[in-house]
C-alpha cells in the first residue's frame, strides 16, 4: 500500500510435499495463527519477501513527509500548521518503527536506505503525485491514510510478530490522521465557493492515485499466492480496494462533492459499489519512475542524505572522542 507489487522471493507456491520438515512446521504455525518471531527459523524467501515489504512500507512513510511538508509553511492557521506538523512527525516515527522491525530480520536501516537511494527499492506510488492546493492536505489524510488503514488493519493479522505489532500501533495514529484529514475536507467543502473548488480539485486528482495504492488486479498480480499462504499478505488487492471504495463513497456524498469517477454506481446485486479502473498504464509509468514527482522526490531524499553526511560524521566522531576519553579516565 505503502507496499505495492512486492515481488515474492519465490515463484509459484510450494506444496506441502515439496517442503522440508522444518518448513512444514513453519507453515503449520502460520496456519494456526501462531506468530513468527525474529529468533524462529524461517525460509529464506519468507525473510527476503518480508524485508522488501517492510522496507518499502518504511520508505513510504519517510518519502510521504515530502508532499505534506510541501504545505507546512503555507498552512492557513496556527492550528492547521500544528496538526500538520504533528502528522508529519508521526509519519517519520512510523518510518523509524518499521525500519527497526525490518532490522529484526537482519537488514540494517542504512542498507535499506542505500537501496532506496540507488533506485533499487521503491516507496508507494501515491507519493509521486504533487500536492497542489491546501485541500490536498485534507485529501491526503482522508484518502491516502484512509487507504493505508484499510490495508494495515488487515496486516495486523500478518504472520510476522514484529510487523503485526507495528501495524497495530501505527493504525491507531493513521486513524487519527484520516479523521483529521476528513475534518479539514469538511471545512473546505462547506466553506466558500473557492474552498469548495479546491476540495473538488483535490478529490478529482487524488482519487485514482489512491485506488492504485492497492496495486494491480488480483488476476495481474503474479506474486500474491505464496505471500498469502505465508500470511505476509492477508487480503487480496481487489478485496481491499472494494472495501476502500465502499467506505469512501458515502463520505464523498456527505461532503456534497461530485463523484470523481462517472463509473461509480451502487450495485444492488453485489452489495458493493461499481467503479472504473484506474489507468494501469499510468500506474506502471509511475512505478517505472516516470510519475509527476518521482525524480524530484528521490533527488530530495538523496540530497538530504548527502548534505547530512558531515553532520552524521561529526556526531560520530564526537561520540568516539567521548568514548575514548572515558576509557582513558578509567
Amino acid at each position: 500500500m505503502y507496499a505495492q507489487l512486492i515481488k515474492t522471493a519465490r515463484s509459484g507456491i510450494t506444496s506441502r510435499e515439496d517442503m522440508s520438515e522444518q518448513e512444514r512446521e513453519f507453515q503449520d504455525k502460520i496456519d494456526n495463527d501462531i506468530k513468527i518471531e525474529p529468533r524462529d527459523w524461517m525460509p529464506d524467501d519468507y525473510r527476503a519477501t518480508l524485508i522488501r515489504q517492510m522496507g518499502q512500507h518504511a520508505h513510504s512513510e519517510v518519502v510521504g513527509q515530502l508532499p505534506e511538508g510541501n504545505w507546512i509553511t503555507r498552512a492557513p492557521t496556527l492550528e492547521r500548521k500544528a496538526i500538520l506538523l504533528a502528522k508529519v512527525q508521526d509519519e517519520a516515527g512510523h518510518g523509524l518503527y518499521l525500519y527497526s522491525a525490518a532490522e529484526t530480520l537482519g537488514e540494517t536501516r542504512d542498507e535499506l536506505v542505500r537501496l532506496l537511494h540507488e533506485g533499487r527499492m521503491k516507496y508507494s506510488s501515491i507519493f509521486n503525485y504533487p500536492t497542489l492546493n491546501w485541500a490536498d492536505i485534507g485529501a491526503v489524510g482522508w484518502l491516502v491514510d484512509g487507504a493505508a488503514i484499510v490495508n494495515q488493519v488487515a496486516l495486523q493479522r500478518t504472520s510476522y510478530g514484529p510487523y503485526s505489532r507495528a501495524m497495530i500501533r501505527i493504525c491507531k495514529e493513521e486513524s487519527f490522521h484520516a479523521r483529521q484529514g476528513y475534518h479539514a475536507m469538511m471545512k473546505m467543502a462547506f466553506g466558500s465557493p473557492a474552498q469548495k473548488k479546491m476540495a473538488q480539485d483535490a478529490l478529482n486528482r487524488l482519487w485514482f492515485p489512491a485506488m492504485m495504492m492497492f496495486g494491480p488486479h488480483d488476476s495481474d498480480s503474479t506474486h500474491s499466492e505464496q505471500s498469502m499462504a505465508w500470511k505476509i499478505k492477508v487480503k487480496s488487492n481487489d478485496e481491499l480496494r472494494q472495501q476502500f471504495v465502499d467506505q469512501t463513497i458515502p463520505q464523498i456524498e456527505y461532503l456534497g462533492l461530485d463523484l470523481p469517477d462517472e463509473g461509480i454506481k451502487w450495485n444492488e446485486e453485489r452489495g458493493h459499489y461499481d467503479f472504473s479502473d484506474p489507468d494501469w498504464d499510468e500506474f506502471m509509468d509511475v512505478i517505472r519512475g516516470n510519475g509527476p514527482c518521482n525524480v524530484d522526490r528521490l533527488n530530495d531524499r538523496v540530497a538530504a542524505w548527502d548534505n547530512g553526511q558531515w553532520v552524521r560524521d561529526g556526531l560520530m566522531a564526537h561520540a568516539r572522542k567521548k568514548a575514548a576519553a572515558k576509557v582513558a579516565a578509567e
Partner: peptide, 22 residues
C-alpha cells in the same frame, strides 16, 4: 524550523525538528 521537514540529515532529526517546530 518547519522548513526542514523531510530534508534533515537523519530520520531522528526529522522527528526532532518537527517536534521543536510544533
Amino acid at each position: 524550523v518547519s522548513e526542514w521537514c523531510g530534508h534533515s540529515p537523519i530520520l531522528e532529526e526529522d522527528i526532532a525538528l518537527a517536534n521543536t517546530a510544533l
